[in-house]
Amino acid sequence: MIYGDRNTGILVQGATGKQGEFHIGLMNAYARQVGGKGVVAGVTPGKGGKEVHGVPVYKVHGVPVYNTVKEAMVHHDIGSAVIFVPAGAAADAIMEEANAGIDTIVCITEHIPVQDTMKALAYARMEGASVIGPNCPGLLSPGEVKMGIMPAGLFSRGNVGVISRSGTLTYEVVDELTRAGIGQSTVIGIGGDPVIGQTFADVLERFEKDPETKAVVLVGEVGGNLEEEGAKSTNMPIVSYIAGVSAPPDKRMGHAGAIVEGGEGDAKSKIARLKKHGVPVASRVSEIPEMVRELFRGKC
């Protein structure tokens, strides 16, 4: 496993909001299914410790809610955090969790100003925390742990890792893999923003050390060159897909980070560079399973 397993206790920041509450329910349903710890604590400033209906502690789906991350850490064994707070408060949440000593921080929140993200990530680096996202769906290791919002029904356990800058496109890839009988070790969405914590290279490094993962599907898109940097950094067998071949220059394609700027980061040159590194690149999502099989036949 990478970033955590069934024994990882999860904290949810923004536990009492609509999104937080909804996904605590889904994450813990998954934890029950696989016999994992799931979400053990929630944090919402001002809501913690209040009496509600005679119950001494505010709870969401039975999960106690605290005012601060440090308070939650006193009462629970917490290895990772998932953030659902609004954009204006998300950078602060990342820093609070890093400061409290949480190792893995998953930030689901979209629309955080880049300056805030850069500061929060610089601070998290100093505290030694790994940040996944922002603007990401989190991760899911089938049969082990779900940290985030991925729809668990599409997944199946196996030996292929998936790293993606997207949400629903990741589910599409997972759906194709599962239907083709190819299971996944860990599927991780690293985020659609221009500045993100864990990059393709960081996740690939973890996959290299993970005995469960034999090959990786790298799902990239227009903007930047993190895909190429990742492919260069690893010896893992990789199949790639890059979205945005038809994206016009200087237009943001939904994700803040999906933009071809100053003639850089376009899909065609990205694909050419990946191929130069010996990485096979699918032209359609539906081609991915067959290319993964090909990879297993050849290299694994």
Binding site: S164, R165, S166, G167, T168, L169, T170, Y171, E172, G192, V219, E221, V222, Y241, A243, G244, V245, S246, A247, M253, G254, H255, A258, A267, S283, R284, V285
Partner: peptide
């Protein structure tokens, strides 16, 4: 589409 990546992939498929 729903999701930026999936919608982009749909546009690419149209071009394909």
């Amino acid at each position: 589409g729903n999701g930026a990546g999936l919608t982009m992939a749909t546009l690419d498929l149209i071009e394909f």
